[in-house]
Design a protein around this nucleic acid. Structure first.
Length: 417
DNA sequence: TCTGGGGTCCTAGGACCC
DNA sequence: TCTGGGGTCCTAGGACCC
């Protein structure tokens, strides 16, 4: 059996923990750039605020409800997430961290254990020890554990156990297909056409029909809903396969110079992440985007992937390659909204292959990067950086409602206490 | 006027190999 | 009338997740 655990209204709960007077009020957290709503208190859900609603569309309604609005504060959420995961690790031998606010836990095959009591204990203890409200769903596959979690929330409970065929059968009967893990808009529309409305309807489809229509992933989901495990629970996070840094501009950009600054910053961020996880990259992709929502603008979505001859993770190398790639795809005359840098072909630092004809020596760049990291660790991100990143950063994102860094910044911690 | 920023996995099809 | 049959690797794009 497996448990799926997540934090209820995660980002809102993190903010409320340090502002307890916000209980029972409409609270929302906005995405980067304060663009759209990505977390809602139950009160916000009750007045009809939807996930990913654009801020400017719900602005009036939020105002009328005397809502409290926050910009995303990832330093705070990441720290609270670490506290949750440390706590959960006490209750399992295998903890799979699935996202910032979710984890799967192996519960084993122990006869006689009262799963309901166990789930309730986890939920209550985590709340007592971290202040975070969580929900626990238990089932024989990861998909059913996830489904149990969602079902618990719908019933206003903090845990649910689906440990018998009868309970599973009863639950899938009414469970909406669009709420099933792995069913997004495209599959939902497809399934609706053939009148599939519940998880039970989907289960009743023939397995090879599902395989044909929804690839092997749909087939695995189908199996899991019948209680046959296809997803494996894994302990340690594997090395990521891609590392990306990207961001929308706060206003349209039309000059190469400004976009170069942004690309250089993203290249620096990706290089830092690579070094932090002791990896190097062989491929770098730079892309540009215009605003797809603006039908009056000409659209342009170029991207270029560059294979570099030797794996790299220094800010110099990445920035140089990425800025060159940007110049190659740059076309004047468009209103650019977003740019990003992605590294793929990621290999461990220690396993970098030397080319037979390799006269290339990057030891100096490595030393410079190390020094850069040390200085920035001590004096703060961006204290030392390449000049090409620019100084005024006029394209930087909007964060009008940012809360304090209660748990990660010493000055704030003292104020909070 | 204003609509996020990360990730994952899978498939089809092209390029290339012998 | 005839036009091979395997492979591998890579990439773009689509689908999904939070």
């Amino acid at each position: 059996m497996f448990a799926h655990v997540d934090i209820n209204n995660c980002y809102v709960s993190c903010e409320r923990l340090f502002r307890p007077e916000l209980e029972r009020r409409v609270v929302v957290v906005l995405s980067n750039n304060d663009g759209c709503v990505i977390a809602r208190s139950n009160e916000a859900k009750a007045i009809g605020i939807k996930m990913a609603d654009a801020e400017f569309i719900v602005r009036e309604r939020l105002k009328e409800s005397n809502a409290v609005i926050f910009s995303s504060n990832y330093a705070l959420y990441a720290d609270m997430s670490a506290r949750l995961m440390n706590n959960l690790a006490r209750y399992t031998y295998t903890l799979m961290v699935y996202s910032i606010d979710e984890a799967f836990m192996a519960l084993g095959n122990i006869k006689g254990i009262d799963l309901s009591q166990h789930a309730a204990t986890i939920s209550n203890n985590v709340f007592r020890d971290t202040g975070l409200p969580i929900t626990v769903g238990v089932g024989p596959t990861l998909s059913l554990a996830k489904l149990a979690n969602k079902a618990a929330k719908k019933q206003g409970r903090n845990f649910m156990v689906l440990d018998t065929e009868e309970k599973i059968n009863a639950m899938v009967q009414t469970f909406p297909i669009e709420d099933v893990w792995g069913i997004g808009m495209a599959y939902y529309n497809k399934l609706r056409e053939i009148n599939i409305q519940t998880a039970h309807d989907f289960r009743s489809l023939k397995a090879d029909f599902v395989r044909k229509q929804m690839t092997v992933q749909g087939w695995r989901l189908h199996q899991e809903l019948w209680g046959i495990p296809c997803n494996v629970i894994k302990d340690v996070a594997e090395r990521s396969k891609g590392i990306e840094s990207s961001q929308s501009f706060n206003t349209y950009q039309t000059t190469l110079e400004k976009v170069e600054e942004a690309v250089a910053m993203h290249a620096g961020t990706v290089a830092l992440k690579l070094r932090q996880q002791k990896s190097m990259a062989l491929n770098l992709t730079v892309y540009l985007r215009t605003n797809k929502h603006n039908v009056k603008h000409d659209q342009y979505y170029p991207s270029l992937t560059v294979k570099i001859p030797f794996a790299a993770n220094s800010v110099h190398e990445l920035t140089q390659v990425c800025v060159q790639a940007l110049r190659a795809i740059w076309q004047p005359g468009y209103n650019y909204l977003k740019t990003g840098v992605r590294a793929t072909g990621i290999i461990p630092e220690g396993e970098v292959q030397n080319n037979l004809f390799n006269e290339y020596d990057n030891s100096r760049k490595q030393e410079i990067s190390k020094l850069l990291d040390q200085i920035n660790d001590r004096y703060g991100r961006g204290t030392l950086r390449l000049g090409v990143e620019g100084f005024d950063k006029t394209w930087k994102m909007k964060q009008d409602y940012l809360s304090r860094q209660y748990t990660t910044n010493w000055a704030e911690i003292i104020v909070t206490r």
